Simulated scan of single mutants.
Amino acid sequence: MQLHQQRPHHDIAALFAEAKDYLRISAPMVRYSKLEFRRLVRQNGVQLAFTPMMISDSINNSEKARQNEFSTGPDDQPLIAQFAAKDATEFATSAQLIYPYVDGVDLNCGCPQSWAIAKGYGCGLLRQPDQIRDVVQTLRRTLPTDFSVSVKMRLLQGNDNETSVQKTIELAQQLEHCGVTFLTLHGRTAAQKHSKDTLNIEAMAEVAKSLRIPLIVNGNVESFQDACELHEKTQAAGVMAARGLLANPALFNSDYPLATATPRACVEQWLDIAELAGDHLLFQCFLHHLSFMWSNQMKRILRVQLNSLNSKSQVLEFLDEHCDLRPSVANSTPPVYTNCTYNHFTPPKHSRHLAAEAEEKSCWDAASDGKFFSEFKSQQLSSNNMEDLELGGLFADED
């Protein structure tokens, strides 16, 4: 089919094929995989980035949701848009809307949060493999064949480890046959708690070996060394990081192979990006990333002070005074933001779409703290020692 293209699309399959060892990938993280953060991690070794997970119902039926949830620019590539969708029509509609601005679309079949499963999203779809196959096949009939279509999944539940691995391989091979460009596999089942011990590296290696398409592996990547070791043990085509990148956006930067915390230069890059972004970057998002990156470098009293500030100017004054950190972009040219319009495609509506419009006011507020940062801030308040402050399992659902 013919759809408007805002820019030439990257060949994602070729991107994997041309990688020297493995592709470095930034995960889809609700609230935190926004354009400005993608700009930061791209400056620090990330070769492929995902948008946050977007709810297809909202994107398909609300212009406000599209403008709030998605933004991009000429430098924001290659880029995969991830969606949570219940059926093929819903996902295909989102894909056609976003098509001009991204290089592929990804179906979330990995989110283990109870709200997502209750609504038929995320891990809930793993119970319906026919539905997942239908989604992929519909996309392949709807969009050009060189446009990337992918799925992010977890290990399937089984009576034992062997059964779990075999069921995962079977679904992965079925999706390969249906035409996915690549797959992403988080090495835990939906029921497993987040801890280093529950990550099944051997299972990921078995799945990678069983496929002819690229497999991205995900889990426990908290440093450049972790990423390299996970690639070595699984021989996967790509390694994805989530909370590790929040704690250190320079995780994939080979200039800092032994870094256990965010390098000062990376924090300064974030201040520059935020300064140039102006009103495009919400204050809460700006502050949250700073807190994730730099809290380990501050004592509790300073962490509390930082998180009590309510404007960018106050934060910059605070960092200048207490941390000798400041932006350095006085004469720099602001980045370009693409004017994303969606009049190239009119989404069809049915009863469930109309119901989604009625629920729009109850959607989460991007300007609020959210569960993850609220838990992280609580940990900051209770920890007196800088060394004790970690992201830990707070972002397990995104990893």
Rank of each mutant, 00 (worst) to 15 (best):
S374Q: 10
K349V: 00
F376S: 05
A330S: 07
T341F: 12
H353K: 01
C363G: 04
N343E: 15
Q379M: 08
D324K: 04
P334L: 10
H353E: 15
E375F: 09
A330R: 14
C323S: 10
S313H: 04
L319H: 13
S351K: 11
L325D: 08
C340W: 00
E321R: 12
V336P: 01
F373C: 03
S351F: 09
G370C: 12
V336T: 13
H350M: 01
T346D: 03
E357F: 02
P335K: 14
S351N: 07
D369F: 11
F372Y: 09
T338Y: 07
F373W: 13
A358G: 03
P334T: 09
S368R: 06
E375C: 12
F318L: 08
N339V: 07
T333G: 00
D320Q: 14
T346A: 09
N331C: 03
T341H: 15
K349R: 09
L354I: 01
E375D: 14
S378L: 06
L316Y: 09
F345T: 00
T333C: 09
S328P: 00
R352S: 06
N331D: 15
E375S: 13
G370Q: 13
A358W: 08
E357G: 07
F345S: 02
K371G: 07
Q380S: 14
N339S: 14
R352V: 06
S313V: 01
A356M: 07
D320Y: 12
A366G: 08
S362F: 13
E321C: 06
A367K: 11
D324W: 00
S362L: 10
P335R: 13
R352A: 02
Q380T: 06
N331F: 09
G370I: 14
P347D: 01
K377Y: 12
S313M: 10
R326H: 12
P334G: 06
S313D: 15
D365W: 03
A366S: 11
H353V: 02
A330Y: 05
W364M: 05
E357K: 10
S374N: 10
Q379F: 05
V315H: 08
F372N: 15
E375H: 15
S313C: 01
S368C: 12
R326Q: 11
L316P: 00
S362Q: 13
S328M: 05
S368D: 15
T333R: 11
L316E: 14
A366V: 11
T346N: 08
C340R: 08
K377F: 12
L325T: 07
E357P: 00
F376G: 03
A355E: 08
S362V: 03
S368G: 08
S368E: 15
V315D: 05
D369E: 15
L325N: 07
E375N: 14
P334E: 06
S374M: 06
K349M: 03
Q379G: 07
V315L: 06
E317N: 14
D365A: 06
D365T: 02
Y337N: 01
F373V: 01
L319S: 04
P348C: 02
Q379R: 15
K371D: 10
Y337M: 09
N331Q: 13
L316M: 09
Y337F: 13
V315Q: 11
Q314R: 03
